[in-house]
Computed example of a mutant assay.
Amino acid sequence: MRNPTGRQLRFGSELRKLRERAGLSATEAGQLMGIKQAQISNMEAGRVGVSAERVRTLACHYDCSDKALVEAIAAMTGDRTRGWWEEYREILPAVLLDMAEVEHHATHLRSAVTVHIPGLFQTTDYAREIFRQDVPQMPPPDIEHRVSFRIKRQAVLYRDQPTPHQAIIHEAALRMKFGGPSVTRAQLRHLLDMSDREHVTVQVIPFDAGTFPGSGQAIYYSGGPVPQLDTVNLDQSHGPVFLDSEAQLDKYRVLLDRMKACALSPAESRDFIHTVIQDL
């Protein structure tokens, strides 16, 4: 049996949260359902398929009255197919594949970065230069795998119903000359082109804004069909870290809103990026 994907693990985690809010043990839940405790545990570990109807039955036994949440969890049972990212299963760390899966299913995306242009807006040359700086240094074939994977992730912004993306980018990220002036110039022009898209919003926090919350980390936020199913992805040097507890989601929603308040308007941000390009 294959290891469960990140989405399957999240599905099981949400079932466990419903049970724990009801104050029931896995054994007690199994007794209510007429099944063994081990089956409850396998469901909550994302190791077995669960029908939408069984999710609704579990929620009923757990006295969960949040119908929107229950239906959103039930909808997660309908797709256990493997996406395009599976072609990288033996090539890249599984956590990167989980990130692509989360983005694929997201209803909206938010990002806030201080040093790099957000990955979903990066050009091939810019992304390649970023990966060349990894420690330890990756062999050229591994770099190319990472680059192609990053570019394929961008499909969520180009499909028939593109995922809305709101990006907050600090001036430092605009002025970092990764790959030299020509690569940076092409990258910023591409960022401007993306900001022209109806579903993309880009806002810049200039140096003049001074200090601002969240300045020490890159934040990627993927919206679920209901707020409880949102996911925070913190971009760390060792790979992405996913957060989905209620307190964590609340914290990063507030943090992103406060960062947005510090940023220039979309129109002012476009003018600002034009100025940076002229300075190169």
Rank of each mutant, 00 (worst) to 15 (best):
R7N: 10
L9K: 15
R10N: 02
F11Q: 01
G12P: 06
K17E: 13
S25M: 12
A26C: 12
A26D: 10
T27W: 08
T27C: 04
E28K: 15
G34V: 10
K36P: 01
Q39I: 13
I40F: 04
I40P: 03
A45F: 02
G46V: 07
E53Y: 10
V55G: 01
V55Q: 05
Y62Q: 06
D63A: 15
A68S: 15
A72P: 07
M76F: 03
R80P: 05
W85K: 09
Y88H: 10
Y88E: 11
L92T: 14
A94W: 10
L96E: 11
A100Q: 07
H105S: 08
A106S: 13
A106C: 09
H108Q: 13
Q122P: 07
Q122D: 08
T123R: 10
D125P: 05
F131E: 14
P136F: 12
Q137D: 13
P141N: 13
P141A: 10
D142P: 11
H145I: 10
F149L: 13
R150W: 07
V156Q: 09
V156E: 10
L157P: 03
R159S: 08
P164F: 08
Q166C: 06
Q166P: 01
I169Q: 00
I169W: 00
H170P: 05
E171M: 05
A172T: 11
K177S: 12
V183T: 12
L188D: 03
D193C: 03
S195I: 02
S195K: 02
R197A: 10
T201S: 10
Q203H: 01
V204P: 03
S222K: 00
P227I: 04
T231R: 08
T231V: 15
G239Q: 13
V241F: 00
S245Y: 04
L249A: 01
D250I: 00
R253D: 05
D257Q: 06
R258A: 00
M259T: 01
H274K: 14
